[in-house]
């Protein structure tokens, strides 16, 4: 009681001195603390995006036009690039999710020695830089790589072309994305108490029911998070496609880089960037919407 009074008194005097209420002061402090990150956001995200959007809407003479976008969606090579990229991204994401989910479920429910080893090793790829990993893939799967040499030594006469192709990129995408996906899903699966699964089995749920009616509903949000992260990472991938991607069609990231630094066609490059940004925003929109849409229970 006394303390309260003293506090109120102190506040009064300080307010009188500065002429500002405590609330105003607090909000000013708050704004000051937010300001640096706001500046960063403006200069690193908002401004470049607006510039790119503007650039994409200008023709070589500096007039407003949709020519760049028209080119993007009508030029045969460009159309192929877009289709190639979307196809690769969707297929890679789906396979990543499937394999990552299987791995996570195996790690969650298997208690053997092998699973113990996999548990220790599976996330190593996350700590290997993309360039090194890509050269590793070249060394392993390349025309004169280890696999080819082993096949040769075993008496085979040819090794199928694997990298510098769709398959090589798919392989690289899986290598880069499965560990993180499996890690996310593992932690989601670890959050399901054993007793919940046991009670489901107790009332008669077999393996299939257990998976579709319990494990999937309890982890689908994390699956969505994993899907979003994989999608974003794969659609914007550059290192692997640059080193082991095919020359045509190309992944959008590479096509963009070429338009920009080789053909010096800033408008087309910007249009591609804006298109990719829109794709990712759409993904982000679905992600945020499903995160916000809590089930009525609100657990």
């Amino acid at each position: 009681m006394n303390l309260d009074k003293a506090g109120a008194l102190r506040m009064k005097t300080s307010t009188a001195k500065s002429g500002l209420s405590r609330q105003t002061k607090d909000s000013i402090t708050g704004l000051l603390m937010v300001f640096p990150s706001f500046l960063l956001l403006v200069f690193i995200v908002i401004l470049p995006i607006s510039l790119a959007v503007r650039e994409s809407l200008l023709d070589p003479n500096g007039a407003l036009s949709l020519a760049n976008y028209k080119y993007l969606f009508t030029d045969k090579a460009m159309k192929n690039n877009i289709i190639f990229t979307l196809n690769l991204t969707v297929v890679s994401t789906v396979i990543t999710l499937i394999l990552g989910y299987i791995l996570a479920i195996y790690l969650r429910f298997s208690k053997g020695r092998i699973s113990e080893w996999i548990r220790k090793l599976y996330f190593i790829p996350m700590f290997i830089p993309a360039v090194i990993a890509t050269y590793g893939i070249i060394n392993m799967y390349g025309n004169h790589g280890w696999l080819a040499r082993i096949v040769l030594a075993l008496g085979g006469d040819s090794f199928p072309r694997f990298i510098y192709d769709y398959n090589g990129l798919l392989l690289a995408n899986l290598w880069f994305n499965i560990p993180f996906t499996a890690m996310l899903l593992s932690s989601a699966l670890a959050g399901i108490p054993n007793s919940l699964i046991e009670s489901a089995r107790d009332v008669g749920a077999g393996k299939l029911n257990l998976f579709t009616k319990f494990i999937v509903p309890m982890t689908y949000k994390t699956v969505l998070v994993a899907a979003t992260f994989s999608f974003m990472g794969i659609i914007g991938s550059f290192t692997a496609p640059f080193l082991i991607g095919p020359n045509a069609p190309q992944v959008l990231g590479i096509a963009m880089q070429q338009s920009f630094s080789i053909y010096h066609d800033v408008g087309i490059a910007s249009a591609m960037a804006v298109f990719m940004f829109l794709l990712c925003s759409a993904m982000g929109y679905f992600y945020i919407r499903s995160m916000v849409k809590e089930e009525p229970a609100g657990r």
């Binding site: 489901a200 089995r201 008669g204």
Partner: peptide, 28 residues
């Protein structure tokens, strides 16, 4: 367990959080 003529009530609350009471009860 799923084929045994037993049923178990567990120590912690063990209802399935993504199902309503009705769905929890009706599942079996």
């Amino acid at each position: 367990p799923e084929k045994r003529p037993t049923a178990m009530v567990f120590q912690s609350y063990n209802l399935w959080p993504h199902m309503t009471v009705y769905e929890n009860l009706a599942f079996g």
